[in-house]
Computed example of a mutant assay.
Amino acid sequence: MFTLWDYTLYLNAMKFDFFIVYLLISIAVAYFFPQLAIYRDGAFLDVLTSVGVSLIFFFYGLKLSFAQIKTGLRNWKLHLVVQLSTFLLFPLIVLLFRPFIGVLLTEHTWMGFFFLAALPSTVSSSVVMVSLAKGNVPAAIFNASISGLIGVAITPLWMSLFLDFTTENVLLDVYAGLMVEIILPVLAGLLLQRFWGGWATKNSKMLSNFDKSIILLIVYSSFAHSFQSGVFATLSNAYVIELFAAVALFFTLVYALLYLLCKFVFRFSIEDTITALFCGSKKSLTHGSVFGKFIFLNNPYTGIYFLPLMIYHAFQIFVITFIAQRYGKRE
């Protein structure tokens, strides 16, 4: 039975994520003040976000722990389950609903869910939740870290199946952009880790706030362009409610399938099960914001494509925190 004491522990563990509120504020600012996004055809904001993204992943490289990643390499079955869930199970579920476009959902709604499904897992929140639940933390660090790098290659490939990347080498441009703003900064961070790694770890909270600031700028820019083009004018309150319900069902389905695989097929320990469930069911808003900047370049529907991801981000934090607290109380 869920007691008042349980509820208090849950709230303390959850530490309400005000970043969700800031996301809503950035959307409101985009609606009322889109001028910054269209200033000089958006060139100023593009440069600002590009530099910010490069710094995010440079700092990420500084904080990578080779020792913890090496420790986590041994459990290959667990890694396989997490990565296949992230990059195969999610997209396949969404693909099942493609025949229903025009009947149950629109093309743009489906594309938003497919973009969500193709993204890598989160990094910091996955590790924090696994630690709170007393799961396999080294494996969580390995999977969360490697997921973003795999996503640089896999996510654009998935999206190229349904977006027009056939003209002017658009797919190559996407990869080039991701290479310059993600891979090269990560490598630079790794090379300089022995000099600045301690500083990055010590100031991880400040760097996390910097990451979130850049994400807010990208979200602002995407929604400002969408508001300017009028694509949200046709969305109703009922649509938003249905979107919330669809996201909740999507998360529940993936989580349930993962649980069944861990318990009855692979027979993982409780620690490995926690890591698989938490890392394999989450999606990264950070990577989604960055990837979307390249994949949906100049697309007026970018704001709509981001909606399922933003709702999923809030929902996964709320639910996984509750579950992590329950796991953490076990003997």
Rank of each mutant, 00 (worst) to 15 (best):
K134F: 03
A140I: 00
T109F: 15
V152C: 03
L96W: 04
W76T: 15
A117D: 06
A118K: 08
G102C: 13
I101E: 14
T106E: 15
G148E: 07
V127Q: 01
S124Q: 14
I150S: 10
H79V: 02
L172S: 10
F90D: 03
L95C: 12
F142D: 00
T166Y: 09
F115D: 02
M159N: 11
K77V: 01
R74V: 07
A153Y: 11
F100C: 09
W76C: 07
S160K: 05
H79P: 02
P156E: 12
G102E: 15
T106K: 14
K77A: 11
F114A: 09
V127R: 01
L78I: 09
K77C: 01
G151N: 09
V103G: 08
R74Y: 14
V81S: 11
L104Q: 13
A133I: 00
G135F: 03
L96G: 06
L78T: 07
V94S: 06
T155S: 15
A118S: 15
A117C: 10
F90C: 06
T106R: 09
M111Q: 13
V137K: 05
I150L: 15
T86L: 13
S85E: 08
T109A: 13
L92D: 05
S125Y: 03
P120M: 05
N143H: 04
P120L: 04
A133K: 04
T166I: 12
V81D: 02
I101M: 12
A144M: 06
N169G: 15
P138Y: 00
V170A: 13
V127P: 02
A139G: 08
M129A: 08
L119Q: 06
L96N: 08
F100Q: 14
L96T: 14
S85H: 12
V128A: 11
K70H: 12
F114G: 02
T122I: 09
L149Q: 08
I154N: 07
V130G: 04
V170M: 08
E168L: 09
P156C: 10
L157H: 05
V127T: 09
L163E: 10
G102H: 10
R74S: 14
F165K: 09
V123E: 01
I141C: 00
S85L: 08
N75K: 11
K134L: 03
L105P: 14
A140N: 04
G72W: 00
T155W: 11
I101D: 11
V81F: 04
N143C: 07
G112D: 06
T122H: 06
L116A: 03
I154Y: 03
T167S: 13
F113H: 01
S124W: 01
T71Q: 11
